[in-house]
Amino acid sequence: EEKRQVKQVAKEKLLEQSPNSKVQVRRVQKQGNTIRVELELRTNGKKENYTVEVERQGNTWTVKRITRT
């Protein structure tokens, strides 16, 4: 359940930055209360990979860091 929520948060964050792209989740890793989500962003056939680190704060998820990989 929490992985599902985190995927959603990570996707939304990337789509905010580039709204007309397609996002696909590649991998989800958990480390303590930080969850790392690896995503693939496609814009006009151009692929970019991103890693989004999401942290739990109380009962909400906040995006800590977005890295292009």
Rank of each mutant, 00 (worst) to 15 (best):
4 R>S: 12
23 V>F: 02
25 V>L: 03
39 L>C: 14
5 Q>L: 11
10 A>W: 02
58 G>K: 07
24 Q>V: 12
59 N>C: 04
49 N>Q: 10
65 R>S: 14
31 Q>P: 01
3 K>E: 15
10 A>H: 00
9 V>T: 04
6 V>R: 00
46 K>C: 06
2 E>Q: 14
57 Q>A: 11
65 R>A: 15
10 A>N: 01
69 T>R: 10
41 L>P: 00
7 K>P: 03
36 R>Q: 12
18 S>H: 15
29 Q>W: 14
19 P>V: 02
54 V>P: 00
51 T>I: 14
19 P>R: 03
36 R>G: 04
67 T>D: 08
24 Q>H: 13
17 Q>T: 10
11 K>W: 05
25 V>W: 03
48 E>C: 04
7 K>D: 06
45 G>I: 05
8 Q>I: 08
56 R>V: 04
40 E>H: 10
59 N>L: 11
28 V>D: 01
43 T>N: 09
36 R>A: 14
24 Q>G: 05
40 E>L: 11
58 G>D: 12
33 N>G: 09
31 Q>L: 14
48 E>V: 05
38 E>V: 11
56 R>W: 12
58 G>T: 05
1 E>M: 06
50 Y>F: 10
22 K>R: 08
35 I>T: 14
35 I>E: 02
60 T>W: 09
64 K>S: 14
53 E>R: 03
54 V>G: 01
7 K>N: 05
13 K>M: 08
64 K>V: 15
45 G>P: 02
39 L>Y: 03
52 V>K: 00
4 R>M: 09
65 R>N: 12
2 E>Y: 06
25 V>N: 02
16 E>K: 04
62 T>L: 12
62 T>C: 06
26 R>G: 09
48 E>A: 06
20 N>Q: 07
40 E>R: 06
54 V>E: 01
1 E>S: 08
38 E>Y: 15
39 L>A: 12
14 L>M: 13
37 V>F: 02
10 A>G: 03
61 W>Q: 02
54 V>Q: 00
1 E>T: 08
48 E>L: 04
63 V>H: 00
36 R>E: 13
3 K>D: 15
43 T>L: 10
45 G>D: 09
43 T>D: 12
33 N>M: 10
36 R>P: 00
9 V>R: 02
5 Q>V: 09
62 T>W: 07
25 V>G: 00
52 V>A: 08
12 E>W: 03
52 V>G: 00
68 R>I: 11
37 V>T: 00
31 Q>C: 09
10 A>Q: 01
51 T>Y: 12
21 S>E: 01
2 E>H: 05
24 Q>P: 01
39 L>Q: 00
49 N>I: 12
57 Q>P: 03
20 N>C: 05
57 Q>V: 10
46 K>D: 09
44 N>V: 08
53 E>Q: 09
42 R>N: 14
62 T>F: 10
44 N>M: 07
3 K>Y: 15
51 T>F: 09
68 R>W: 05
45 G>W: 06
61 W>E: 00
43 T>I: 04
34 T>I: 12
69 T>N: 13
8 Q>P: 02
30 K>Q: 15
67 T>W: 13
31 Q>G: 06
24 Q>E: 13
59 N>S: 13
12 E>N: 12
61 W>V: 04
53 E>V: 09
39 L>T: 04
17 Q>I: 15
38 E>Q: 09
14 L>Y: 01
15 L>S: 03
21 S>K: 02
52 V>C: 05
64 K>G: 08
17 Q>R: 09
56 R>Y: 05
35 I>M: 14
16 E>R: 03
43 T>K: 08
15 L>K: 05
8 Q>K: 14
36 R>T: 09
38 E>G: 07
13 K>A: 15
27 R>S: 12
26 R>D: 03
54 V>A: 03
65 R>T: 14
20 N>M: 06
13 K>T: 10
25 V>D: 00
32 G>C: 04
2 E>M: 12
43 T>H: 10
27 R>A: 11
19 P>N: 02
44 N>W: 08
41 L>Y: 02
48 E>I: 04
12 E>S: 05
4 R>C: 07
3 K>W: 15
47 K>S: 11
13 K>R: 06
6 V>D: 01
49 N>L: 11
28 V>K: 00
4 R>D: 12
18 S>Y: 15
29 Q>L: 15
35 I>D: 01
6 V>N: 01
7 K>Y: 14
26 R>H: 07
1 E>Q: 08
1 E>F: 04
59 N>K: 11
23 V>K: 00
39 L>W: 01
28 V>A: 06
4 R>T: 08
25 V>F: 10
60 T>L: 08
46 K>G: 07
39 L>K: 00
26 R>M: 12
55 E>D: 11
40 E>A: 09
56 R>S: 07
14 L>F: 05
19 P>S: 02
42 R>V: 12
57 Q>W: 12
58 G>E: 13
5 Q>C: 06
68 R>M: 14
56 R>P: 04
45 G>E: 10
29 Q>R: 12
41 L>E: 02
44 N>Q: 12
65 R>P: 01
57 Q>K: 11
14 L>D: 00
3 K>V: 15
33 N>F: 10
61 W>M: 05
57 Q>F: 10
32 G>P: 03
49 N>P: 04
29 Q>Y: 12
33 N>R: 12
11 K>T: 08
50 Y>G: 00
45 G>L: 08
60 T>I: 11
40 E>Q: 10
22 K>L: 12
14 L>W: 02
66 I>S: 02
26 R>C: 06
15 L>I: 03
30 K>P: 14
12 E>K: 08
30 K>H: 14
66 I>Y: 03
19 P>C: 02
28 V>E: 01
65 R>F: 03
68 R>V: 10
31 Q>H: 13
33 N>D: 13
15 L>R: 05
2 E>G: 04
38 E>W: 14
21 S>P: 02
44 N>P: 07
42 R>K: 10
60 T>E: 14
43 T>Y: 06
29 Q>E: 12
45 G>S: 11
23 V>C: 04
32 G>R: 04
13 K>H: 07
29 Q>A: 12
60 T>K: 08
68 R>F: 10
41 L>R: 03
35 I>V: 13
21 S>F: 01
22 K>A: 08
38 E>N: 08
20 N>L: 08
66 I>D: 00
11 K>L: 13
51 T>V: 14
51 T>Q: 10
59 N>Q: 12
64 K>M: 13
16 E>M: 06
28 V>H: 02
46 K>I: 13
53 E>P: 00
61 W>Y: 11
20 N>G: 15
61 W>G: 01
66 I>L: 05
24 Q>T: 14
32 G>Q: 05
6 V>H: 02
56 R>N: 07
32 G>L: 05
24 Q>M: 14
50 Y>H: 03
56 R>K: 14
17 Q>N: 08
18 S>Q: 11
42 R>Y: 13
69 T>C: 06
2 E>V: 10
24 Q>L: 13
46 K>W: 11
27 R>W: 12
29 Q>T: 14
48 E>F: 04
9 V>Y: 06
58 G>I: 05
29 Q>S: 13
6 V>M: 03
47 K>M: 08
45 G>V: 05
37 V>Q: 00
16 E>S: 06
67 T>N: 08
19 P>M: 03
63 V>E: 01
10 A>R: 01
3 K>Q: 14
22 K>N: 08
12 E>V: 03
29 Q>K: 12
54 V>S: 01
43 T>P: 02
40 E>G: 04
22 K>D: 13
42 R>M: 09
26 R>I: 14
35 I>P: 00
